[in-house]
Simulated scan of single mutants.
Amino acid sequence: MYPVAIVGAGPGDPELLTVKAYKRIKEADIILHDNLVSDSILSINERGENVYVGRKFGDTSDQIARQKKINELLQKNYLLGKKVVRLKSGDPYVYGRAAEEARYLTEKNTPFEVIPGISAALAAANIFNIPITERNKSNAMLICTAHTADYSFEQLTGIAHMLKAGNTISIYMGLKSLHRIVPKLLDVCKDPTIPVSIASRVSREDQAILTGTLGTIQDLVANSDLQMPAVLLVGATPIQ
């Protein structure tokens, strides 16, 4: 029997898949895929069944029940002898909830493999020439989510002090939370000139980037038509 493959689909461009990810997708009998996986990647498989198990922004369905169903589908189709792929956008272990599926499969003694994918922040940094680490400028990058806005004061202070020290912060799923994130970073850093880039639909045909500062980015977004998904890169300036 074939191990369940938990696969990172990267940001959307099929040419950015790993060779192993491409093979698993192409050979799959069934693919359980998330919302942000591109059609061009799903079309690699011409023989199997595609099952949508994702969620979109604003989806109020019960996440625990949804994840339970996904776990059970992975196990059920594995026992049927199928080549099962759980396909996630970006990297499975970067906000991909792969841990819950890996633990479930481990408890069920079901063999599985996890195949890395290029995460959105790394894809955006390279595609838009944003040096998220650079000698004598930044020696670290912190990955966090829009839930930054809900962190405790101690956590937010630590994040902001990294930024203030010259390091880079990437914020996933933050486009709709700028009104909470930016004021809190400004309150701690007290520097409205810190650069901010927002990369939208990275690696796809309609990808876009908006660049400003902590002091200007909210107004720039308000006058733009940036689309989700988007990732924020704070503290590094694009090379132009």
Rank of each mutant, 00 (worst) to 15 (best):
V188E: 14
V53S: 04
I181S: 06
A160T: 08
F112V: 10
I64A: 13
K68W: 01
T237A: 07
I132Q: 00
D13A: 01
A121E: 09
G235N: 05
R201H: 03
P131T: 03
I70N: 04
T60R: 15
Y151F: 15
K137A: 11
I143M: 15
A123H: 01
Y52H: 06
E27C: 04
G54H: 07
I25H: 00
M173E: 10
S119G: 11
L163F: 02
V182T: 08
I159F: 15
P195F: 10
S61H: 13
I181L: 09
P116Y: 06
L74P: 04
A28M: 08
A65N: 08
F153P: 05
K23L: 06
M162P: 02
S152V: 06
I25M: 05
D39A: 13
E72D: 13
D29L: 05
G10E: 01
P11T: 00
G58W: 11
A165G: 13
L185Y: 11
A123C: 04
L175E: 05
V202S: 05
T193E: 13
L186R: 08
A222T: 04
I6Y: 05
D91Y: 01
K68M: 12
D187S: 12
A121W: 10
T168M: 09
I209Y: 02
M1N: 12
L74M: 14
G12A: 00
E101N: 09
R66H: 05
L185A: 10
G215F: 01
G117D: 04
D219R: 06
V231D: 01
L214I: 05
L178N: 11
L87P: 08
P92C: 07
I30D: 01
L163R: 02
E134W: 10
M173D: 07
S203F: 00
S89K: 02
Y52K: 09
A236I: 05
A121Q: 03
T148A: 10
R97W: 06
S152R: 07
K56N: 12
R24F: 14
S203Q: 02
A160P: 10
I44K: 02
C144M: 15
R86P: 09
L220N: 07
M1K: 14
I143V: 15
Q63H: 14
E15S: 12
I70H: 02
M1R: 13
A140R: 10
N109D: 15
K88G: 04
S40Q: 13
R204V: 07
V4Q: 04
V231L: 06
S43F: 00
L232T: 02
L17H: 00
N77T: 11
A149H: 09
S61E: 13
Q155R: 14
G90E: 08
V37K: 03
Y151A: 07
I44L: 15
I25E: 00
I194T: 07
R66F: 05
P111I: 02
Q75T: 10
N45D: 03
Y93S: 14
K164T: 07
G48S: 08
V114D: 02
A98E: 05
L175N: 06
V234E: 07
I209M: 14
L16C: 04
I64N: 12
